[in-house]
Design a binder for these strands. Structure first.
Length: 134
RNA sequence: AUGGCAAAACGUUCUAUCGCUGUACCGAUGAGAGUCGGAACGGAGGAAAGUCCGGGCAACACAGAGCAUCCUGCUUCCUAACGGGAAGGCGCCGUACCAGCCGGCGACAGCAAGUGCCACAGAAAAAAUACCGCCGCGAUUUAUCGGGGUAAGGGUGAAAACGUGAGGUAAGAGCUCACGGCAUUACCGGGCGACCGGGAUGACGGUAAACCUCAGGAGUUGAAAAACCAAAUAGGUUCUGAAUUUAAAGCUGCUCGCUUUUAUAUGUUGUUCGCAACAUGGUCAGAAUGGGUAGGUUGUUAAAGUUUGGCAGCAAUGUCAAAAUAAGAUUAAUGAUAGAAAUUGCCCUUCGGGGCAACACAGAACCCGGCUUAUAGCUUUGCUGCUGGU
RNA sequence: GGAAAUGUAGCUCAACGGUUAGAGCAACACCCUUAUACGGUGCCGGUUACAGGUUCAAGUCCUGUUAUUUCCA
């Protein structure tokens, strides 16, 4: 189940705007995570977007490389560490993982940080749960 | 042999596992649309980059001509077109000078259409107002002064009135002559032409990447252009029907409604001045209509395309024939991990090989033709001067 | 994806193609004051973003590159 299809990507402009304006966020270097509970009935637990700022990385090649590594790390570990928890709690999320590192990290580092990020996110969501937004 | 310059070709490959995306296919389900599963095939570049030019395509505008603005600028040809390319001319560079060949570079129309500018220095920077000097003339205090001629010499400058020699002259001066350079040319010859050779002429400083002149060209906006689709939401316009009318305050959580006060929605007509009739406007309900927003489809990848071969041409290129399952994303795919090989460098070597390291620049966004810039490594070709004279 | 503008001293800006690129603030030194501030005097600081070209001469003109900023949504 290491898939990553179109439905799992966050493409809607309104949702994106809502995410960045109203969503809560935290830092887990080299990622900046923004998340919000999703109201709409989406077919997957999480819709995610991976922005990499053009200001920091001038060349498209670098941005592509970072995005692809992030996506790979997310794809391989989301099922065990994120989906299982969310499915139990029956929560749906919109998520944004911005890369704000100053240098391009190698894949093993990014993978480790991604795991740490998942743990942190689950904790926060669990704390938020008592007063759901909808 | 090595280095440099120029041009051209290439610019990693294979396997396994897990993914992403497109195409058409099979199975299950379903009335259908679709959904789920399976296996097959395709999936970044020489610059995809910069956006510097030129097109295609689309929308809007548009009688014709001129002015302004901007761009281009040796000639001929190629091309859909170009500021691109090819061939040629001319100039410059490649060992002092000259000639020829070879190679490289050149925004290379016109200062002899007009105007402007040429700091400082210098007498003078362009119609020579003569500082020193040179040569006459006049005056005399015999060493100077006055008023002329003179661009040969001095010095200044990036640049000084074409250079050298002779004649000529009071001294000088293209003033005259010879040789040489430069420019122009309504002349002659060669070349399609740029231009070349000869003759004639002389207005013989530089600057047009100074204004400008001449010749040629340019409508504007860009796929976030543009066309179509069926829904939802708020509002616009029109039609039909219903009720009947405004403003302020209060009652109730809100709406409806009720109460009080004031005026009696606007206009026209009539009027007994109390009001009545008609029209318009407003409220509610329904229908139609065209536009906007977000979404989807088309545009959108079979093309002035790629590869190979024949023919025409010096070449750019054209033409004919054949071949190929020929990227198509849209918050944006083409990836990750592991292993092997190739290439290059270094070290060791029993010359069989082994170990370590490196592997550039860089990512399609409607599509083409160029240019420019970045680029590890690797391959090929040419040149890096040759000949003759002084 | 498309379209513009600007790079000059540590900062903010000037400068007809022509002398050694200038002004204010800042920094430094001295004076003033018991001392600091204010004030005064002096001084320091520039590859005019980079490369090439035109010109006798380029910060200025032309071409290419690079960096920054802005606009269209």
């Amino acid at each position: 189940m290491y898939t990553f299809k179109k439905e799992e990507r966050l493409c809607n402009k309104r949702l994106l705007e809502k995410l960045f304006h109203k969503g809560s966020s935290f830092l887990c270097y080299p990622y900046r995570v923004s998340w919000i509970m999703a109201e709409a009935e989406q077919p997957v637990p999480v819709q995610v977007v991976f922005p990499v700022p053009k200001k920091r990385y001038k060349h498209a090649v670098d941005r592509n490389l970072i995005r692809r590594r992030m996506r790979e790390a997310y794809r391989l570990h989301k099922q065990q560490n994120l989906y299982s928890f969310l499915n139990e709690a029956n929560i749906k999320l919109s998520l944004s993982l911005s890369y704000i590192g100053k240098e391009i990290e190698p894949y093993p580092v990014m993978e480790k940080k991604m795991l740490k990020l998942f743990v942190q996110l689950c904790d926060l969501v669990a704390n938020e749960k008592p007063q759901p937004i909808n």
